[in-house]
Amino acid sequence: MRNRPLFLKLLSAVIVFGAWEIAGRIPVSYAFPTFLESMSALAALTLDGTIFTAYAETLKPLVVGIIISAVLGIGIGLWTGLSSKFDWLFSPIFVVMQAAPLAALIPLLIMVYGIGLTSKVLVVCIMAMPVIVLNTSGAVRNTPYTLKEMGRAFLGTERDIMLKIVIPAASPIIFAGLRLGVSAGFIGAILSELKITPTGVGDIITYSRSIADYPSMYAAIFSIIVLAVLFLNLLEKIERLLFGGNIRGYVSD
């Protein structure tokens, strides 16, 4: 029973990679390498250390951006969720941010903040923050009323009710927002490297494409997906550690 999820994961990996391999062999397109070619390119990139220096560069805006987005995003989300005034003031900004065509706005960011780290961090934040803010504020606003009433009946202070009831109750949706935000942040980090200055993983992608080394290009894309999945798994572990009973949903379900 315990091994079944692992088995299913492996099975789905085999199916997806098998399909990739077959599609590469047909070939679907001259620019689409097979799975095995991509993996050997990844091994080569790993062995000569290129991938590590690339990630050292890419992770900077990514990690900084995600930390800022998570801390600021949850903070603003709690604030707008609890006060209708701040909701009125801030929510439209994030709705607009989420809907904005970011790639088109990047030249504007470069004009203001240059081509350095600041612009890249901002791209990550613009991608990651709106969904974190909007999810957090929505979740906080929808705390089950009887839980708050229970807190008052058992003499909880406003602060107790906030920290021990409202935030934990909102945590599943806050974490769902974090997961979506982090995924969007990964996209933002690569986008910024493709659109602002080619550094890190974005550089491998751009360069390999320009010399038609498609296996290396797909190897880089594959590696970023793997990293994102690992990161999302880590996030899930943190959630389970903090709010174990929430995983199966609410008592009132």
Partner: peptide, 20 residues
């Protein structure tokens, strides 16, 4: 207001789902 001399049992239990 609520006081230490009274305790409430709720119709829908009002348990914290994340707590043992």
């Amino acid at each position: 207001g609520p006081g230490p001399d009274r305790a409430f049992v709720f119709q829908d239990f009002a348990l914290l789902p994340w707590a043992s």
